[in-house]
Simulated assay, not measured.
Amino acid sequence: MLGTSVAREVTEGTRLAQEVQQPVTTGRVIAVTSIRGGVGKSTVTALLSRIFNHYRRDPVLALEADAALGTLPVRLGAESVRWSCSDLAQILTPSMQLTDVIGYLVPVTDGGWLLPASQGRVGAPLDVRTYRTVTMALRRYFAVTVVDCETLPGEVARTAMDTAHARVVAAPMTAEGVNGTRVVLDWLAQLPHAALDSTVVALTANSPDTTLDVRAASAYLRETGAAVVSVPYDRHLGGGGPILNTMLGRDTREAATTLAAEVMRRAVRVR
């Protein structure tokens, strides 16, 4: 029985890795948002970025699209920030090569790149035009761009969710979080294209003890057509510092890989 269990685990791990590694013909943009701050949106973005960087061999970018001093640079271990989204939007040209572009980005430990929304201070809100300019241009260079959006109903967040190849809604494992996320999913259902088919809910636990019936909550959210992946509480994530794959609990790594596989499968289906 033990051998059979291990074999199944290896088979499932291989399947998930293959999903994450799917080749793309054009860069895929994955937008991550939430109904309010402090529910793990930047943590989910950083987790996805780490998993994609671990499994993929093509360039991966983590893009922060929230100028309100978000935590993405901290979560990815950025020691310094020089250029922001708005700065890069003013200098991007079609003739630039990847080697030119990465000179304005922050290299991430263990692979990948980061483009922050600000230079370590509260700045002007990122506008939709700047967001579109940067994401459309950088898709040429990066196979996967994971965007840490502002919270809904911000204009950039709504634009990002509408135009992304796949969407992730970070939701806390609370009754309020689940009910609020259901409202977001119902809104996505009204978009002119099949947005829910490419949406995954990351149900995150911010405490080791939760009274929420996770199975019932997941079933309630899946009624909309979106996928749901539960991300368990992890002391390493709860510390608030840089996220390191080697420090994550086994269940957390499996959940993050499952989330990345679900998202990539949906992103690749969109032309």
Rank of each mutant, 00 (worst) to 15 (best):
G180R: 15
E176V: 13
A164M: 02
T135V: 14
E155I: 08
V106E: 03
F142Y: 10
W187C: 05
S95K: 11
T174L: 08
L92A: 14
S95I: 06
M173G: 04
T133E: 10
V106R: 03
P94K: 06
R121N: 11
V122G: 12
E155D: 14
I102N: 03
R132D: 11
T174G: 13
M173Q: 14
H165C: 09
T145Q: 10
V101K: 00
A166N: 02
A124P: 11
E155W: 01
I91M: 11
F142H: 06
G177Y: 01
R182I: 01
C149W: 03
V156I: 06
V147G: 02
P153R: 07
R167L: 04
W113L: 05
G120W: 12
G154Y: 07
D127P: 06
G111L: 10
L105T: 02
T151H: 10
I102P: 02
E155M: 08
P94F: 07
Y104F: 15
A170K: 01
V134Y: 02
R121V: 15
V146M: 07
P107E: 05
L152M: 14
V108T: 07
V156H: 00
T99K: 10
M136V: 12
G123L: 05
L88G: 05
P153D: 13
A175S: 13
R129V: 15
A89V: 12
V108C: 06
P153C: 10
L98E: 14
M173H: 08
V146P: 02
D186Q: 10
P107Y: 08
T174V: 09
V101A: 04
L152N: 02
L115I: 06
G123W: 00
Q90P: 07
Y141E: 03
D100T: 11
R129S: 12
T135Q: 06
P94M: 08
G112P: 01
V147D: 05
W113C: 06
G103V: 09
A166E: 01
D110Y: 12
I102G: 01
D110Q: 15
G112A: 08
L105C: 04
T174E: 09
L114H: 04
T151Q: 10
V144D: 01
P125E: 11
D110H: 15
L152E: 06
P107R: 04
L88N: 09
R140T: 12
T159G: 02
H165R: 11
D162E: 13
A171F: 05
A160V: 04
L126S: 00
T130R: 05
V134S: 03
A117Y: 00
V128M: 06
T130V: 15
M173R: 08
G111S: 11
L152C: 08
D100S: 13
D127F: 09
L92C: 15
L98S: 12
V101Q: 03
T181D: 00
Q90G: 12
L114V: 10
G123V: 07
T181I: 01
R139G: 12
G123I: 04
L185N: 00
T133Y: 05
T181V: 03
D148N: 15
A157V: 00
A137L: 05
V122M: 14
G120F: 09
V122R: 14
L114M: 09
L105A: 04
M161N: 01
L88I: 13
S95E: 13
R158Q: 09
Q90D: 14
L185V: 00
A175K: 09
